[in-house]
Nucleic acid binder design. Structure first.
Lengths: 235, 235, 235, 235
DNA sequence: TATGAATGAGCCTTCATTCAT
DNA sequence: GATGAATGAAGGCTCATTCAT
């Protein structure tokens, strides 16, 4: 009824990309075959080579599409968030969301994209950097604003963010555990921002006592001294 | 034409393992070929099948060797370290050291070992668990002793430890950045234990946390001092 | 380097089947190689897999073709023959004819088709049964009509028919002996119908049996004439 | 206690033959591997080549052993049987007995021994002939004595004997049917000696009537006569 | 004579890529 | 532009046979 969208030209390309997406999500790069992709795209192998130079380029185009969409989705929403903690929570939740929409994407990105020796400097690497910069900038910003410690290594922080998240996903998703992106993101950010060390006892019982005792011990370095215990009620 | 003169079987086996190691470090499992391995081992493909049932078994044997050596190296040294922070520093430094000895090992482990659907329950999975338990137990212990926050999710903590580390390695190693395992490990542990936040999340009594951590570091420099048991009832 | 110019798919398929036929006639299944078949078909191995799933399927397709043609040839001619003896003569002559057209077919069928543990219930088994039923039904019919002994074991009779024939072929064909299918078939049927014993097994009224058979042969020369039935009480 | 049998020398050879026998009974020639045989013989592959030139020769030696034992077993027992029918019964029962002792032997002989292009004239062929001559001579003898029809083709008779038997075995053995060698042999010999054609009615009702009628019909060959229904009630 | 590690040709099968139609 | 048959190199794996020990 309404006018047909322009179609003709690049519809095929999109169909192929969609088919490739489905296939690459199911099989690692080496095991995904052009034939499968062609079948799913409803065309023959030869056709694909009319749109993409070769298998690798098709795969890269796919990842580019993925990143493009991801970034396009994040950008406007990210722009309106102010606090560092909120920004991190949003980014982690969004990243986690990927695993909900397509549980295999992270594995694909991880396994294939970075595998090749030609990764650094590649188009893919650039896209990945563009994506990672949401985090990088958030951290730099947080430090500048005084919300994050001044001595925080931004790159290392970013690596813990993504790396920890990916590791967690690998061990958790698909294994019947919780997968509430928002709650998990909140927990993770708390973990990173507040640290793991036991907080000083909430009551009055003084942190200083312990500290003083230990300092005293250190000052008598040469003879390994006995120690008294510190926080009784924590657990 | 003629075959190599007879050699010790174990020698050949070691040669093959070494060759396989080199090849699997360069190529993902699917792409690494027995032919390549044979070439590098200085024998023909058939020979390899005299030592290993098939490609997968060769690969698994390789990983098993890796883990065995790693665990054998860690175990006794770990056993004599007492403090949670020291333990974590040691484990992270040791893990980082892997990337110095063999920059690609982690990638291999990551890419291949967990990829297959048959990973869970495999010999490899068990080895990986045994290794990961150094961290897992350290964290659980730290919580029990009151050195780590009681509400720390041990699994998530472990994932951030390994995941962050791996991510960092991926982005850092081989790109001309610093690689002093001990210093990096120290920094990472500080990051995780103390948190990123500039000030204690909320509340007034701020500066102690940082103090504690710095003292802990000082302590770590001494030989592990005698300690009194802390939480008697835990586990 | 360049591939053969495009051809009709069915033509290629036929070429491959013809090549496979030639190779399987010369070598037992296990020894026949796809490479040989491809060479003889004038293509490369890969091409064959564009037409057949695998070696076994190619082989089965071959046998199916053989049986299909055989059955298609026999069915209409068999349908118009009436007497048991005539039917048997026709079937044996036709079976013998196979050995003239393709001296090795029976050996192939025999060697391979029934060899595998998966034979029973296979498509091949069904085809073989369909073919064998021409004989089975003829025998059952002959007994019902009183033309064959009521105590004849039909299965055993069928086995002697085919088995004896195959054995004879094996020992005779290609060794310079006579090979007049019709005459041999006539002789064989006589052998089986009349028995080898010089005189009726025991009893006095001897010569009739032979007479009957000779008359039957005369009848066989005419278009199937009317017949009266003989032994009422048998079976 | 008693003196050890001479041993030393050819014991190994016998062990190897025994192992080969077991393996070749389980796998077709191509699929039986020297390694398997060595394993079962309790030696290593190299050893086998000290006793047999190659795989084929080992196989042939095996068959020779088989025939030797078979012939040695048959000869004395056959020598004391007088009647043609009894002799045939004995030979068939003995042949059937092979399938009881080792259900796979006939298949092996059939599939492998005769498969090769070099079968005729081979040592194996000769052994097979020696064995088959028990039957051949029995038939020739039977004709000479007047116990078998003078116009019986001895070779064809032999082929029906063995071929039918083998075919029957293939379709019967291992499929849960009866396997009483003596009874089956008796039945088979009866089948062959007496023929399949229905015997003249036991009562008085005259064979002549039918014959005369049919002869009359034949004499009026030229006009295809009308037919009367015969067996109304049959199927 | 026994050993068994090494060989190397061969097997079946897959698949990215090309190109005549 | 689409087609899909053909290619050919490569893959994992097997195994009869050899030969230095």
């Amino acid at each position: 009824m309404t006018s047909l969208p322009k179609r003709r030209k690049s519809v095929r390309r999109a169909e192929i990309l969609a088919a490739a997406r489905a296939v690459f999500l199911e099989h690692p790069y080496e095991q995904a075959s052009i034939t499968q992709i062609a079948d799913r795209a409803g065309c023959v192998v030869g056709t694909i080579y009319g749109y993409f130079e070769n298998k690798r380029e098709l795969f890269d185009a796919l990842l580019a599409t993925f990143y493009d969409e991801l970034i396009a989705d994040i950008e406007p929403r990210f722009a309106v968030i102010e606090g560092t903690a909120d920004r991190l929570r949003f980014l982690m939740a969004r990243h986690l969301q990927i695993t909900v929409d397509d549980p295999s994407w992270l594995k694909v990105l991880d396994r294939e994209a970075r595998g090749g020796e030609s990764y650094f400097g590649s188009k893919l690497h650039q896209l990945n950097r563009r994506y990672a910069q949401f985090v990088t900038r958030t951290i730099a910003d947080g430090i500048a604003r005084g919300e994050l410690r001044a001595d925080l290594d931004p790159q290392m922080a970013r690596d813990f963010l993504f790396g920890g998240l990916e590791h967690w996903v690998r061990n958790t998703v698909g294994r019947g555990r919780r997968n509430d992106a928002t709650a998990v993101a909140r927990e993770m950010v708390r973990l990173l921002l507040d640290g793991w060390a036991a907080a000083p006892a909430k009551g009055a019982a003084a942190p200083w006592q312990g500290l003083e005792a230990r300092i005293a011990k250190l000052e008598g370095r040469l003879k390994p001294a006995a120690r008294t215990r510190e926080t009784e009620e924590s657990k």
